[in-house]
Nucleic acid binder design. Structure first.
Lengths: 146, 146
DNA sequence: GCAGACTGCTTGCAAAAGCTAGCAAGCGGG
DNA sequence: CCCGCTTGCTAGCTTTTGCAAGCAGTCTGC
């Protein structure tokens, strides 16, 4: 009933692609998570508080959901909004560890100060990495595939 | 836009999650950051790749920017998108163990490096305390950095 | 065969986002 | 004085989001 599912192969996509390629990634991820959770599209739509057609379009990359909607979907799926934002390409931070996290959320620091601290921290880590030759790259994997 | 909003949102970010407040909050934060960076509205709009009137409306809380726009603004301001999302209420604060604790436990740093980081951190905090004089963000526990 | 309930998808429409063009006010220099 | 350049804000328009309503296909039981 749905033979029309040929992905248009974004490699040769014309200049008309604006919403499609960005939304497709996130939609794929959501659908995958939904299937993993074994719930139907309508169920998730109800859980997330969005309409079922809209969720369908999001999953197929026809619509680009706002951050609010994204957050509600994340809640419905019981996954972190962060993971979803990373998938959506609106958060490119792969997290750097407890220190980085702690600095980022510290409300006692200004953004400039955070940046300085993070820079110093990063330079220390690089410094040590040189010492240990090429052993670096701590936990980079995300994706909570329960 | 969202008259039917039965989701409780667990109140982790704030007691009130009103869209209007949300926009005003984030706008205020952006304007504050922009003034701190000493750049004009039009300059930031160019840096962020958005139109200047739209940025003006965002700062005054008349429009609710999408996550993409937020990210571009964050980039233009050289601040983390995460902080902006938290301000916008679309990202819960990812737990915040004290910075000091995280640094102390970090095995990637030497003791000397830890000391430097802690010193810088504490100096920042003192700086802010003097600057703002008794007005600070909520939930500040006493964390000494010796 | 045919209700009934499930799956997901398509269609039109209201509302909001987001941009282009243009406005009044402030400031320095000729 | 007036010119040019900047500051931020307003008006009107196009594009997109997001939803209500409705459609086709698949099982299950009668």
């Amino acid at each position: 009933m749905d033979p029309v599912h040929e992905a248009d192969t974004s490699g040769a996509t014309g200049p008309i692609d604006k919403v499609a390629d960005l939304g497709r990634d996130i939609g794929d991820y959501i659908r995958q998570q939904r299937n993993t959770a074994k719930i139907s599209l309508r169920q998730l739509s109800k859980l997330a508080g969005v309409s079922n057609p809209y969720l369908s379009q999001i999953e197929r990359g026809l619509r680009k959901p706002s951050a609010e909607i994204l957050q509600q979907i994340a809640k419905g799926l019981r996954i972190s909004a962060e993971a979803l934002y990373v998938q959506a390409g609106i958060l490119d931070e792969p997290i750097g560890g407890p220190v980085v996290d702690a600095i980022r959320v510290d409300s006692a620091l200004s953004e400039r100060q955070k940046q300085i601290l993070l820079d110093v921290y990063e330079s220390f880590r690089r410094e040590n990495a040189e010492d240990r030759t090429t052993s670096d790259a701590p936990g980079q994997s995300d994706m909570e595939a329960q």
